[in-house]
């Protein structure tokens, strides 16, 4: 007679229960608060139904921050993947084994830095008067260059820092993926005098389609965590040029009005959007 193995139950049930409690309590609470007029300063509140949500629809700042969030996602994900694939292929083609080991270590550093630190490093590098990045521009034109205060460039400058953190890290992963491929098709193509870019465009990258799509998805998920970078570098400014949804929810709930109910409504909309979108995509990709 086989004794039933209890291990999966004792190992999984407590952990999963705890995760469910930890994750769902705040979420349900957020949904509940979003139907009230709760503020930070008064513990009493009353039910207002969908008022917060209908107010959001007419809130131009909300529409603007949703648009900024969308731009942020598209820019950071595509730029990260471009840098990762380009640099990964470049390392694969031109670097010796020892160089690869060296570059892999160097390119891993930015992603390990606390986001707050990366933000400060670049905030000072972008400083209009003293920054090292803006120095060439100052030396040539004699004028200061203020990328973070210009509504046209601020979001791109912050996105650059995000790509700096993730793109180099993903380049290392792309290199490892390329190294894990069987060498025969590449060598066969070389014998046929295929150029390096042809080999990668037509052979290796199509072979790596699945992992690359997963990488892009991971980046899309991580791009949702833009708050710390934006908070330190621009605080959503100039004006509301870099105000993403989480930044807007934060300032509604904590800085300007203490309107927790309204902030919760924003959070709930973000929550529903991200869960639906990412669940659908993830299940499709990993079918």
């Amino acid at each position: 007679m086989r004794i039933r193995n209890t291990l999966p139950y004792t190992f999984l049930v407590p952990t999963v229960l705890l995760l469910i409690v930890l994750a769902f309590t705040p979420l349900i609470y957020a949904v509940m608060v979003s139907f009230t007029d709760r503020t930070l300063f008064e513990p009493t509140s009353s039910w207002v139904g969908f008022e917060n949500y209908s107010k959001l629809l007419g809130d131009r700042r909300f529409v603007s921050s949703a648009w900024v969030s969308l731009k942020w996602e598209v820019v950071t994900v595509s730029a990260t993947m471009l840098l990762a694939v380009g640099l990964g292929v470049l390392m694969f083609e031109t670097a010796s084994r020892r160089q690869r080991a060296f570059f892999s270590l160097v390119f891993l550093v930015p992603v390990l830095l606390p986001r707050v630190c990366a933000a400060f490093v670049w905030k000072f590098a972008f400083h209009p008067l003293y920054g090292i990045i803006t120095f060439p521009y100052r030396a040539i034109t004699g004028r200061p260059l203020d990328v973070l205060s210009d509504p046209n460039s601020a979001l791109l400058a912050v996105a650059f820092v995000d790509v700096w953190q993730w793109g180099f890290f993903f380049a290392v992963i792309v290199l490892k993926l390329l190294e894990s491929l069987p060498p025969q098709p590449i060598e066969a193509a070389r014998l046929d005098n295929a150029k390096p870019w042809e080999i990668h465009f037509y052979i290796t990258l199509p072979m790596l389609k699945a992992p690359l799509v997963s990488l892009a998805l991971v980046k899309a998920i991580e791009s949702l965590r833009s708050f710390d970078l934006i908070y330190v570098m621009t605080r959503g400014g100039p004006g509301i040029a870099t105000e993403t949804l989480d930044m807007y929810a934060f300032s509604q709930g904590f800085i300007e009005s203490g309107n927790i109910a309204y902030a919760s409504a924003i959070a709930v909309i973000m929550l529903i959007a991200t869960i639906v979108i990412f669940t659908v995509i993830w299940k499709r990709v990993n079918r």
Binding site: Y29, L224, A267
Partner: peptide, 27 residues
């Protein structure tokens, strides 16, 4: 079942941090 659990664990990463932080603060 374990596949679903694995996906559930991953999907926790999909949660926007603000959506957790605001209610957690009140709780």
């Amino acid at each position: 079942i374990t596949k679903e659990i694995q996906f559930f664990v991953l999907s926790l990463r999909f949660l926007p941090p603000v959506a957790v932080a605001i209610p957690l603060m009140v709780i």
